[in-house]
């Protein structure tokens, strides 16, 4: 999972001088960074600093006011609208609350991207969906359940299975462990780590979970004062003298996590 980046690998995500404004309100100021393929990047920052906006910009749901974003070296369109098939196939998204289609069963939720691609072979869809369900730790008997009948942990797993069904090369996670108990959270982290080792995708996640930062992420990007103040491996970030990093990473709780 934490394989060292190879210099020949292209960038999974690249931001070039991205500025975002909502009306007069400045959200991002001149953000530039690269994420190499196979890396797991955590976006960290205070609530309301624009982490989720950054993630939405990578998905293509939000267009930056200025600057360019490249996903797998492909520039994202500057006009709002649907991404083309190939670009949207590049990334899978796990939304904070799962965003499962409540009118569809677990099976149909996971099969949805396959059907949208135009695959009509039901036997093939069934095999792929059941395999993915099993990969995320659920059983074939869960396939008939409706999203309303699922626990928080199961919703995240089903949403992860849906995000991974097309085996994207970039996985985007918005607060993947929020709302999960410590056991479910731990299980989810090891599941992600396992899948990452198996499918070798890159990950960009928004998280406040210090355990994930320590156990899973290969890089941490810290957003504060509208800017990207640092993007590096965790030890480098911890050594950064910025006041926000002092508050976030050197409080009592964080020290307990990182010292252990």
């Amino acid at each position: 999972m934490t394989s060292s980046p190879s210099p020949v690998l292209p960038n999974a995500v690249r931001f070039e001088q991205v500025w975002t404004r909502f009306g007069d309100k400045l959200i991002h100021q001149d953000i530039s960074f690269c994420l190499q393929q196979g890396q797991i990047l955590a976006l960290v920052g205070a609530s309301g600093c624009g982490k989720t906006t950054l993630l939405r910009e990578i998905i293509g749901l939000q267009i930056p006011s200025q600057g360019d974003i490249f996903v797998m070296n492909k520039a994202l369109p500057k006009q709002p609208g649907h991404l083309d098939l190939q670009t949207s196939r590049l990334s899978g998204v796990l939304f904070q609350k799962g965003a499962l289609f409540s009118a569809l069963s677990v099976f149909e939720n996971i099969a949805f991207p396959l059907r949208e691609l135009g695959i009509t072979d039901n036997a093939l869809i069934q095999h792929l969906v059941i395999m993915k369900l099993q990969r995320v730790g659920l059983t074939a008997s869960d396939a008939g359940l409706m999203p309303a009948a699922l626990s928080g942990g199961m919703v995240k797993r089903v949403a992860l299975a849906r995000a991974l069904i097309l085996e994207p090369r970039l996985l985007l996670l918005d607060e993947p462990t929020s709302g999960l108990d410590p056991i479910a959270s731990e299980e989810f982290v090891s599941l992600l780590s396992e899948l990452h080792g198996e499918l070798t995708f890159s990950v960009v996640m928004v998280t406040h979970d210090l355990d994930i930062l320590r156990d899973l992420c290969t890089e941490v990007a810290v957003l504060a004062d509208h800017q990207l103040i640092v993007k590096a491996a965790l030890p480098t970030v911890l050594a950064c003298p910025h006041p926000f990093i002092g508050q976030f990473f050197h409080n009592r709780r964080a020290k307990r996590v990182f010292c252990n």
Partner: peptide, 13 residues
């Protein structure tokens, strides 16, 4: 050989 290619060229199967 990925799922997109299969969708675009169904005769492959």
């Amino acid at each position: 050989w990925h799922v997109c290619a299969l969708a675009l060229t169904p005769q492959l199967q």
